[in-house]
Amino acid sequence: MDLEALSVTFRLAAITTAILLVIAIPLAYWIVSTRSRLRAIVEAITTLPILLPPTVLGFYLLVLLGQRTAFGRIWIHLTGHTLAFTFTGLVIGSAIYSLPFAVQPIVAGFSSIDIALVEQARLLGASRWRILRSVLVPLSARSIAAAALLCFTHTIGEFGVVLMVGGDIPGATRTLSIAIYDQVQDFAYADANRTALVLVAISVTALILLYARRGAYPAATAGARHD
């Protein structure tokens, strides 16, 4: 077992999940509450990583993080090194790749909340921030937990984007998926099998956790009528 790869994988998954929840919760709130025409574009962009081949996404991220773009040049100017083939670059790539797995369950959770509850909160003087914090987030706890689990397990299993953006640097960017690839290249099938079983165990545990969480609250009863 490549313990360094295990450590990199878990750190990557934990940091990516934390970042994605911070981004996805307000983004999902905007998506369910806005009347802006930009909503369709934003939803399309956040869903795009599901459809794109990981190598395509990885290639564009590699270009974005390198010297060819203003963002890449500014980063190099500020830090003295490129983002590509670093753990930070890997986190950025993973966050973009797993974004739909964070946003979509939370959007579904927010959308399922009775609009009458949100309206009641508004009538009782709640700001948008308080509605999010005190109504939507607690009532969508199951969806947010599902989003976190999906992000975590999806990040753990990443291969294409990780290889394109991070390469294969032991202790820095080599994850379990890359380790399996390396082990197979070396014909070390027993090692590859042990590493693969770790990924299988993580995925199965995550799914059991996901389905073991039963609905926390019944659907609220009141609804807006057009009487």
Binding site: E119, S134, A216, A220, T221, A222
Partner: peptide, 14 residues
């Protein structure tokens, strides 16, 4: 500053 009560109460279930 208007209170509103519906036919089916919109109480926060949590």
């Amino acid at each position: 500053g208007i209170g509103f009560v519906l036919q089916q109460s919109a109480l926060f279930p949590h």
